[in-house]
C-alpha cells in the first residue's frame, strides 16, 4: 500500500533526526556510563578494564558516601520545603489577588530570572553574601557595630542560592494549578459558609496539590545533583554528592567511580519518583 509506506517515510524523516539525536546524546551515553560503572578503570588511552562491582561496593562500605548522600538529600529537602513555603503564597497572590495586565507583567517578572544564566545568578549571591558585601553593609546601616555575618561559604548560603534559583519553578507550577481553580468554586464554598481558613485548607490546597507536587519533583531532583552552587556558595563546606561526582571526572579521573555514584544518585531519584507516583495518582484522581 503506497499510502502506508509514504506515511512511514514521512514519520521517519520528521521524527528521525530529533529522536536519533536524543538517542545518541542522552540514551547511549547513559548506557555507556552504566557500563563504565562496572569497570575497574576507564578503558581509554590504551588502558584495559576488568569488570568489577567495587565502585558500587564502595558506596555501601564507606560511610563517607552515605553521609554525603544524606547531606544531599537533606539539602534537597530543605530547599524544596522552603520553595513551597515561600513560593506557594506568591503563586496564590499572582493567581487570585492580581489581575489583568498586572498579572501578566508580574508573572513575566517572576519567571524572567529563572530563564537567565544560572551560574551568573549564583555568582550574584556571592556579591551579596560575602563579608562586607551588600548584606553586611545593609545591616550595618541599622546596626553600625555588627560583625560580618559570614554567610558566604556556609550551608545556609547554599540553601539561599538554590532556593533563589528554583523558587520561580515552584511559583510557576503552583500558579498553573491555582489559576485553574475556578472562581465559582470559591464562591460556592463561601456560599456554603466556609471561612477563609476552611476555604484555604479544604478547597485551595487540595486542588493545587498537583502543582505543588510537580514543583517538588522538578526541584528536588536537580538540587540533589547540584555541584555548582555548593562549590561557589559553600566553598569547603559545600561538599555534596554532586561535587564528589564532579571531582571524579575533573580532578581525580576515576570515571568508573563517578559513573557508579551517578547511577546510585539516579537510582535514588527513580525510587523517589516511584514512591511519589502512587501518591500523585491518588491525589490527582480526584481532580
Amino acid at each position: 500500500m503506497k499510502a502506508a509506506a509514504r506515511r512511514r517515510l514521512a514519520l521517519g524523516f520528521l521524527l528521525g533526526p530529533a529522536y536519533g539525536w536524543l538517542a545518541l546524546t542522552v540514551l547511549l551515553p547513559l548506557a555507556a556510563m552504566f557500563y563504565f560503572s562496572f569497570l575497574t578503570v576507564a578503558p581509554v588511552g590504551g588502558r584495559i578494564a576488568e569488570p568489577t562491582l567495587r565502585h558500587y561496593a564502595a558506596f555501601f562500605d564507606k560511610g563517607f558516601y552515605q553521609t554525603l548522600t544524606w547531606r544531599s538529600l537533606k539539602l534537597g529537602f530543605d530547599v524544596t520545603v522552603l520553595c513551597i513555603l515561600l513560593g506557594f503564597p506568591a503563586a496564590l497572590a499572582l493567581a487570585k489577588y492580581v489581575s489583568g495586565r498586572w498579572r501578566e507583567a508580574l508573572f513575566l517578572l517572576v519567571v524572567l530570572p529563572f530563564w537567565s544564566n544560572a551560574l551568573v545568578r549564583t555568582f550574584s549571591w556571592t556579591t551579596v553574601l560575602r563579608d562586607d558585601g551588600f548584606l553586611d553593609r545593609a545591616i550595618r546601616v541599622l546596626w553600625p557595630d555588627a560583625e560580618p555575618l559570614g554567610l558566604l561559604f556556609s550551608y545556609p548560603a547554599i540553601v539561599i542560592g538554590l532556593v533563589h534559583a528554583y523558587l520561580p519553578y515552584m511559583i510557576l507550577t503552583c500558579y498553573i494549578s491555582l489559576q485553574a481553580i475556578d472562581d465559582s468554586l470559591i464562591e460556592a464554598a463561601r456560599s456554603l459558609g466556609a471561612s477563609s481558613l476552611q476555604l484555604f485548607l479544604r478547597v485551595v490546597v487540595p486542588l493545587s496539590l498537583p502543582g505543588i507536587l510537580g514543583g517538588v519533583l522538578l526541584i528536588f531532583v536537580p538540587v540533589i545533583g547540584s555541584f555548582m552552587e555548593p562549590r561557589i556558595l559553600g566553598g569547603r563546606t559545600g561538599i555534596m554528592l554532586g561535587t564528589v561526582i564532579e571531582d571524579q571526572f575533573t580532578a581525580v579521573f576515576n570515571w568508573p567511580l563517578g559513573a557508579a555514584l551517578s547511577f546510585i544518585m539516579l537510582g535514588i531519584v527513580l525510587v523517589i519518583f516511584a514512591l511519589a507516583t502512587p501518591l500523585l495518582r491518588r491525589r490527582l484522581s480526584g481532580i
Partner: peptide, 30 residues
C-alpha cells in the same frame, strides 16, 4: 479571591512584591 478582607488582599500582594525583591536583589546589586 472573592470575599475576604481588603487588608488581607494587600498583605498578600505585599508578599508578592517581597518575593520579587528577593528574586531580583542579587542581580540588581551585582
Amino acid at each position: 479571591m472573592t470575599g475576604g478582607s481588603a487588608w488581607g488582599k494587600w498583605t498578600v500582594r505585599g508578599y508578592l512584591l517581597l518575593t520579587l525583591l528577593f528574586l531580583y536583589l542579587p542581580i540588581v546589586v551585582m
